[in-house]
Design a protein around this nucleic acid. Structure first.
Lengths: 354, 354
DNA sequence: TGAAATCGGTGTAACGATGCACTGACCATA
DNA sequence: TATGGTCAGTGCATCGTTACACCGATTTCA
């Protein structure tokens, strides 16, 4: 059963391969309706599907979009990857999956390899402040969409970002805790040297200051810089933070803003290790609103990222802008996060702390 | 900056493109050491990387392995996909990701598309008892590795399976609950019409019978057949099951074997809705041992699948057997699952049930 | 010593799709 | 009736790599 090629279709339709090619590439104005119909019929009858490799070889592009995430093992990234695949499928594209493990060098290598393999659209979930490590590929024409990393002042013009407003998110989360009467609020994160993380942190600081509180007075977890954990181990960060913060009860917070839900969940687990109850003893708020936030006991309050919408935006920016040959400069999007209040945040305990 | 092709390398090394091609394809016995060295040097100096599209067009194969999972949005599949990517990377392959949503038709379409796009190795995470829907592609030479679905008697010869022994898993889980004194144990699952699920169920039945108990006497959850939920919504199944099973307290179990951790977690959430406490009131055991099992409150007892090992096996079967042109018939693997006891399972409450 | 085998390497025709330059046929205008 | 302009469609070279057939120069051995 030999492959059916464009020649077979041409023969069956009584035209030349060129005409079939024109048909396939939407240059249909160049032919009369009857021809179009004959070609259509021939394609259907023979079950013809264009050969990707040949197309790619000829015009140097794939219909594939590259997706570079820190790790699909992390439920948040898994969920995002899922949405990306769904959105790409709807536009007739496949998704090539890469896990960077948040290693800039791996990011660079993946982006370069994808580029050299003809992938012209990449959704890069990076947290690095600078895109220097991939800028030379961008200059050559890569359509890069960064996710979870808002556009930065000195990003190349063509780069599009899809992200929530992390600063607002940090503020909303912190404000929520303040409204519940908390005045001792810690911020728990792994390494903060990333665009979105520092934005969330700034939001936290802003909200505290707006309430007349000083960040310096808050319990600090200093383990964050030492963190060498990847995204899969995000929960370990939270667990360690709980252990450390409550080692000295006089310095213990009554509430915590965690950098994401996995870390928040790890923190909750750490509290449990210490015999403390989430909500009643310590309020915990996370980021992302992964499925498990709602499943947890107690259900976790979280700042939601609308990943379905974000994935659709990312994919359409990556693919459709590609077809227009960058006619428009591309528009970065900064979505408003949404606070989802559940039971892990409660009023500050009125009784004196032990 | 034009692409550097095999011709450039040939010219730089003072040989013909054919020789460079021979070099690249490990037919190095056909040339003298000095030539080999010159080619090596030229490749290094020019930074030559073979063009995948051209290679694929020429010999009809990719270096890509297809991965079809129900949904990477489910943490278990996300974690597995991660391990697969890591293992594939180590062997120099990329991973093309597809979500079947457990829809046989989508499975078929994905497998066919991958095949037609030159992908010759696919890891298919399916639960369907029959592989008929993809058998014609297998006959054409696809190397198919099924995961989470043990080999079936009438599978095509060339198909390799990587799975845990689900029957044993079901037995181990159930035996654990029996040892804790439970005699009213329900089995909670979405649609059971899948190989691994029914094996787990049989294991559950076997363990009960071995203990002199009758499955018919156990509380039954009948919602399972009606379930139309996908893998992302697995938790919903558990939640619904809890609601239904405890609607009639006289029929309520003291322990539950859930088909997987997500469903178990959903069940725990459902118990919470009802004001019941996991462990103390009702013991819950899951399958898979996803990261979140350990994070949960209480930490979830689970039957572990060694996914790192399994992913490595799957990838090496998919890729390396490919290179040997099926010299050996391929060996299916049935790994022994491991029970991980945590705190969601406790002794049956001695007090009379309400 | 002559025929055959081996060695190290080359020439060439594909793989399938594409897009530019082109060709007739037809129509409109001067 | 020349001239020019559309229109519908075609021919061909090309993308980068590979496998097969082939070639000249040694070496082997009967």
């Amino acid at each position: 059963m030999a492959r059916v090629t464009i020649q077979h279709v041409a023969q069956a339709a009584g035209v030349s391969p060129s005409t079939v090619s024109n048909f396939l590439n939407d240059r249909q104005g160049r032919m009369v309706a009857a021809t179009r119909a004959r070609i259509e019929a021939a394609i259907a009858e023979l079950g013809y599907r264009p050969n990707r490799a040949a197309r790619q070889l000829r015009n140097g592009k794939t219909q594939t979009v590259g997706l570079v995430v820190p790790s699909v093992g992390n439920p948040f990234w898994g969920a995002f990857a899922h949405e990306v695949e769904v959105a790409a499928l709807a536009l007739g594209c496949s998704v090539l999956l890469c896990n960077s493990e948040r290693d800039p060098e791996r990011e660079r290598r993946y982006v370069e390899e994808l580029w050299e393999d003809g992938v012209r659209s990449i959704i890069l979930c990076t947290s690095l402040p600078s895109l220097d490590h991939v800028s030379h590929v961008i200059e050559e024409g890569l359509r890069l969409v960064t996710f979870d990393r808002p556009a930065q002042p000195n990003d190349p013009q063509s780069v599009v970002s899809i992200s929530i407003d992390n600063n607002v998110g940090g503020q909303v989360a912190t404000a929520h805790l303040l409204e519940l009467g908390h005045t001792s609020i810690a911020f728990v994160s792994g390494s903060i040297r990333s665009v979105n993380r520092s934005a969330r942190y700034r939001g936290y600081c802003d909200a505290l200051e707006a309430a007349g509180l000083s960040v310096a007075d808050m319990p600090q977890w200093t383990g964050m810089d030492a963190s060498h954990f990847g995204d899969v181990e995000a929960a370990e960060v939270g667990r360690a933070a709980a252990r450390d913060l409550f080692a000295d009860p006089t310095n213990a917070p009554t509430a915590v803003v965690a950098i994401n839900d996995m870390t928040a969940l790890g923190f909750c687990r750490g509290l449990r290790d210490l015999g403390l109850k989430v909500g009643r003893d310590v309020s915990v708020i996370g980021f992302d609103d992964i499925i498990l936030a709602d499943l947890y006991d107690p259900p976790l309050t979280s700042v939601r990222q609308p990943i379905t919408r974000m994935a659709q935006l990312a994919v359409s920016e990556a693919i459709e802008r590609g077809s227009n040959e960058s006619t428009d400069p591309g528009s970065s999007v900064l979505l408003r996060p949404e606070l989802v209040v559940r039971e892990s945040t409660e009023h500050v305990p009125s009784a004196a702390r032990p």
